[in-house]
Amino acid sequence: MVQSIIQEIALQKDYLESAPLKSIYFGGGTPSLLTQKDLDTIFNAIHKYHQISESVEITLEANPDDLSLEKLQQLAQTPVNRLSIGTQSFFEEDLQWMNRAHTAQEAKNCIQIAQDQGFNNLTIDLIYGTPTTTNEMWKQNIQTAIELGIAHLSCYCLTVEPDTALEHFVKKGTKEAVDEEKAAQQFEILMQQAALAGYEHYEISNFAKPDCHARHNSNYWLGASYLGVGPSAHSFNGHSRQWNIAHNAKYIKALQEGQLSFEKEILTPDQQYNEYILTALRTKWGCELQKISTWGKGHEQYFLKSVEPYLKEQLIQERKQTYTLTSKGKLLADRIAMELFI
């Protein structure tokens, strides 16, 4: 697999314009399985084909049970300078309900070890809205993260995705569905508590201490270009998106034959507009009228007309022709985006 990834990096070397890379992200699946040597090989390949910015952000996703002292020591030797840890919760009940492999204790320990190894730019995932999570527990989870001095939080409401085991259990009635009122309350708790602790709510699910927002993920929301490498990885260059075949063996086989197997969609102006609304509205940077006008006068007028009721209801606020969600609006981001869609 690593070999194929190297091949793909070579093949796709011209996908991004030549500007130096600002961020690299190892995510999806279990990138912590990569050995130090694997990582070295990949970094060499990246260096070979790309210029890399001095202040590059290099993130690696890992679950607490993967992050042993030994593993963290090894990682400290690599250029990886940011860890994204799938903590989910510091409560045993929650972790069990979510079928997680790690314990609450492991969740805390690995953070401290990582910090000891010099990883100061940490982000952790926390989940709310789980049936086992009371509002009190949720407050404590946030508090624990704050006390551990974590610079960046990604907090997700439990979602029952189609075709997952969870959906199956919920349908069968063996697991409770998400209680919307509780989820809303916990989202509100989160917004308040994070703000008090000095985190900036810069995207619906993301909170950062000053200057610690995920540069990599922010690119997705700002419509910047990115290159995804590996099975099922998505790439985007402003007007077209492509995603590699998901099947590992087929991915490898194609690259052995010197080819990349992917699907591609070209976005129409309306689709580009809709995506911009969908993603930008979720962020503190908001939707800029200036940007919207690049799709034409019609789009601009349509936007102004459809945004009006939301301004009135104070779900959206406007400052210098930039439109962002209010706290109240953040609870309804999808609905509002849909209404603003063309």
Partner: peptide
């Protein structure tokens, strides 16, 4: 009243799926 309607994750691969879903809702609306 609808209390909460917001997707948790909206990263690279999620965006196009979510857009299509909302576009479908829009059409129904």
């Amino acid at each position: 009243a609808l209390r909460k309607d917001v997707t948790a994750k909206c990263y690279g691969g999620d965006i196009s799926r979510k857009r299509k879903l909302l576009e479908k809702q829009k059409k129904g609306k």
